[in-house]
């Protein structure tokens, strides 16, 4: 098992893993845009055959004003069901957070999670230390609410 920065050659595998796992999907241009804009902060997990079994796709958010500190955002993260219990999601998140901080000097990270997704909520809150910032009503296309979560990163 390999955890490493995502490269362009991984995008097709990341897109396939996303389609297999999650209801929020994106066409290749969106994946390319992330790789061409913030090439250092997305990561993949691959098995010994080089198949992508998990990924985290991250970006640096636009600053709303000059006082708003630089911060990262996790767009999408998932691990194939058959590769769970290896701690991959945790490792992917940590790798991405470290890169956001060291390359872009990001001071905090945000993400959205479905209210019903207990497993993911547990990972973000209990293992990684995210806190619920607010609830965004009907955030998802199917009408489900999202927790907007935030992790402050300090040196």
């Amino acid at each position: 098992m390999n955890i490493r920065p995502a490269r362009v050659e991984d995008l097709a595998g990341m897109q396939a893993a996303n389609l297999q796992n999650l209801p929020e999907n994106y066409s290749m241009k969106f994946w390319l845009y992330h790789a061409m804009t913030w090439p250092q902060i997305s990561f993949v997990a691959e098995d010994h055959k080089g198949r992508i079994v998990g990924y985290v796709l991250a970006k640096i958010d636009d600053q709303e004003s000059s006082e708003d500190p630089v911060h990262g955002h996790v767009n999408s993260i998932s691990v194939l069901r058959s590769f769970r219990r290896l701690g991959l999601a945790n490792k992917l998140m940590l790798a991405s957070q470290e890169a956001m901080r060291s390359v872009y000097k990001a001071t905090y990270v945000t993400l959205h999670v479905r209210k019903s997704n207990k497993a993911a909520l547990g990972l973000y809150r209990d293992s990684l230390g995210f806190k619920v910032d607010k609830v965004e009503e009907k955030y998802y296309a199917d009408g489900e609410d999202a927790y907007s979560m935030r992790l402050t990163m300090t040196d």
């Binding site: 290749m28 390319l32 061409m36 090439p39």
Partner: peptide, 29 residues
């Protein structure tokens, strides 16, 4: 065909962003 067309906008974009290594990889890919 779409994926091949997708690269078009990045020929200018990546130079403006100076993200050259990832851009060169994309062209090769």
């Amino acid at each position: 065909n779409e994926i091949e067309d997708d690269q078009y906008d990045f020929h200018g974009y990546c130079l403006r962003k100076f993200n050259i290594m990832t851009y060169l990889r994309m062209l090769k890919w």
